[in-house]
Simulated scan of single mutants.
Amino acid sequence: MSVSQTSDATDLGAPAAPAARPIPWRLLLGFVLPVGGALLWEAAVRGGLAEGRLMPPPSRILQTLAELASSGDLWLHIQATVARVVAGFALGVLAGTLLGALAGASGLARALLDPTLQGLRAIPSIAWVPLFILWLGIFEASKVALIAVGVAFPVYLGTLGAILSIDRKIIEVGRVFRLSGPALVRRIMLPAVLPHYVIALRSGLGLGWMFVVAAEFMGASEGLGYLLVDGQQLGKPAQIIAAIVVFAVLGKATDAILVALTTPLLRWQDVAVRS
């Protein structure tokens, strides 16, 4: 058999590598549902099939956003909200990671901490508001503390679950190769924990954006949560939905940033499906 025939046979026998889809098309696919839904609602309101008073069409929402942006109010509110989420996220990640690592590494610490933390995790976010106002006042400290509480619990649970799910056999393999304690953590335990930990961070970030709304109900004079309250009190549904849209955009953007920052840490994974 000739070299070319051998090459052809090898190509026929080997499974074809999946063709990589262009990244721009994949990004555009994510806009199909929201943009399509917005266009349909716009058409329904303009055609007289629906009333746009309580649920304004996208054109009116965009107009409201443009007015807020031109006056400078939108950027002021975005800056205030993002600053609170970043501060609360950092504190919540620190607390959740430390508590999760402690409870995962020690059975005694887990028996001591986990029941209390699981009970606190079930408390609704709004229930913390009067307590934090009483303790910390109505200024930034209480708002950041509330966001940190929302972030800490999913990070704690993800860290704890990741540590408890480490396969005992890979630990034994590390000991067979006589890895020291720090080397065992760095080369075996940390890679085993990271995928679950990244998911916990993303969950915590999502809850941080949810908790910031409750935080900004606590007497805030600026922030996207304030825009929601102001729109409700003054009967401005377009302003309310505009603030919700900005929340959605910022939440997605920060999640994408977190994924981009953590992706290099997970390149070692040999997974069936990659994003």
Rank of each mutant, 00 (worst) to 15 (best):
D167E: 14
L164S: 12
S221F: 11
Y226G: 00
G158N: 05
L157W: 00
R168F: 09
M218A: 15
S203H: 09
F211W: 14
R202E: 12
L194C: 04
A192F: 10
V213S: 04
I163E: 00
L201F: 10
V144P: 02
G204A: 01
V213Y: 01
S165K: 07
R168S: 14
L160G: 03
V176M: 15
G206C: 04
W209M: 00
H196T: 11
I147W: 13
V144K: 01
L160R: 04
S221K: 15
R186T: 09
Y226N: 03
A162T: 04
I171F: 09
A152N: 00
I170W: 13
V151E: 02
G225L: 11
I166G: 00
F177D: 03
L164P: 07
S180I: 10
L227I: 03
V193M: 14
G150H: 00
V149Y: 10
L179E: 12
S221C: 04
F211Y: 15
P195K: 03
A200G: 15
E216H: 13
M210C: 12
V198H: 01
G223D: 12
A148R: 06
R187S: 12
L157V: 08
L227N: 05
F211K: 04
I188L: 10
I147Y: 12
A220S: 13
A145F: 12
V144G: 02
I147H: 13
A220P: 08
I199W: 04
L184V: 07
G158H: 01
P195H: 01
F217W: 14
P191G: 07
G174Y: 10
L224P: 08
A192C: 08
P195N: 01
E216D: 10
A162F: 05
Y197V: 00
P191C: 01
G225D: 11
T159L: 08
Y156N: 00
V176C: 13
G181T: 11
V151T: 11
G161P: 06
R175A: 11
G181A: 15
P195D: 01
F211Q: 03
G181I: 03
S203F: 10
A214R: 08
L224H: 10
A220I: 06
G208L: 01
V198G: 01
E222H: 13
G223I: 13
G219N: 10
L207D: 04
V149C: 12
L184P: 07
A162S: 15
E222Q: 14
A220M: 06
S180N: 14
I147L: 09
L201D: 08
V149G: 07
A200H: 06
W209T: 01
G208W: 03
G174I: 10
I147T: 10
V193G: 09
G225P: 10
V151P: 04
M189K: 12
L205Q: 02
W209A: 02
V144R: 02
